[in-house]
C-alpha cells in the first residue's frame, strides 16, 4: 500500500566494522585529504553535482564510512574541471584526490 511516504532504510554505520583501508591509502598518497574541514565549497561549485551528486566533501566522508558504492556513483560524472580545487579554503588538491580514488578502485571488489 502506498501512503505517499515510507520508512527510509537505516543509515547507521558501524564504524568498528568499516573497512577504511582505501581512505588510509588515499591519505598516504595525498595527505591533504585529512585536512578537509567539510565546508562544502566544493559541493556548491561542482559541475557534476547535479548529474551524479558529486562532491569532494561527501566523497571523503563516504570513504571514511566505507560507503564504497556511493563513492563510485558520485565519481562517474566528475569532469575534473578543477572548480573544487579553486574554491577550497584549505588548498586541498582535490583533483589529485579524485584521480587517486579512481585509481585505487582498481583493487576494490564488487564494483558496479
Amino acid at each position: 500500500m502506498d501512503f505517499g511516504f515510507n520508512l527510509s532504510p537505516s543509515s547507521a554505520v558501524e564504524l568498528d566494522k568499516v573497512d577504511t583501508s582505501l581512505f588510509r591509502e588515499l591519505c598516504r598518497i595525498e595527505p591533504g585529504a585529512r585536512t578537509c574541514i567539510g565546508c562544502g565549497s566544493c559541493s556548491a561549485t561542482c559541475t557534476a553535482s547535479e548529474h551524479s551528486g558529486m562532491s569532494v566533501r561527501k566523497l571523503l566522508l563516504s570513504l571514511q564510512r566505507g560507503k564504497m558504492r556511493d563513492v563510485e556513483k558520485m565519481l562517474t560524472c566528475c569532469m575534473l574541471c578543477g572548480k573544487c580545487t579553486m574554491v577550497c579554503p584549505r588548498g586541498i588538491n582535490t583533483r589529485r584526490i579524485i584521480l587517486t580514488v579512481c585509481r585505487l578502485y582498481e583493487n576494490v571488489e564488487g564494483r558496479i
Binding site: 565519481l75 560524472c77 585509481r103 564494483r111
Partner: peptide, 13 residues
C-alpha cells in the same frame, strides 16, 4: 597509460 578502477562516463547527462 594509467588504468583506473572508476572510468567516468557521461551517458546520464
Amino acid at each position: 597509460m594509467r588504468k583506473y578502477g572508476i572510468n567516468q562516463h557521461y551517458n546520464i547527462i
